[in-house]
Amino acid sequence: MRAYFRNIYEGLKSAVAGLRVTFGYLFKKSVTVHYPFEEVKVANGFRGLHHLKVDICIACNQCANACPVSCIEQTFDRIDKENVLVSRFSIDYNKCLFCWYCIPVCPTECITMGAEYELATFDRKSLDYDLVARGERTAKRNMTLFREEFVQVIEKVREKKPELAEKAEGLMGDPRVGLCGRNPEKDKSASSGFVEEEADSQASVSEEVAP
């Protein structure tokens, strides 16, 4: 008999305790993020879409070699010993598995992974991203300066390889980007002193390596 009433008492007590908890939650702030209308914040180190700082990419192809699914493809022209024209750096997100292997192998740390994750599209082909076209450059360089040095490089190769110069000019006309690859070792000292440095390397214009 005692157990019977104790049972009822315990049942009522636990019921009231449970009801109190849920009633409290009724007025707490919801954790829902209204995703398409609000942004979902990603954690630090999130492996989202790649970013490429085109001006320090040396087209060494290391990232493409490291890629387990071969989704990276670089198209570049060597202008001279130190300058490489990267005209296309494509990542095929149909294949990419966001494994991050391309990041640590980069000698210039020009490729990184960002916070974007919205890849949905109506066409499979549009998943083949050109990182050059999405172009970015290191913060220390500004666009006009970059164009100046770029023009100089073009002028150098104009006599030897007119078609390459033309191609570079055509790419430069694209308002989205100015493109060039440079040797980062030399670049470290020269953020604005490109023109002086250029005088030294003028001699080695002739050595070109086909991609």
Partner: peptide
């Protein structure tokens, strides 16, 4: 109600 009890909307 169910949503808000479960911290949803």
């Amino acid at each position: 109600i169910s949503a808000h009890i479960q911290s949803r909307v």
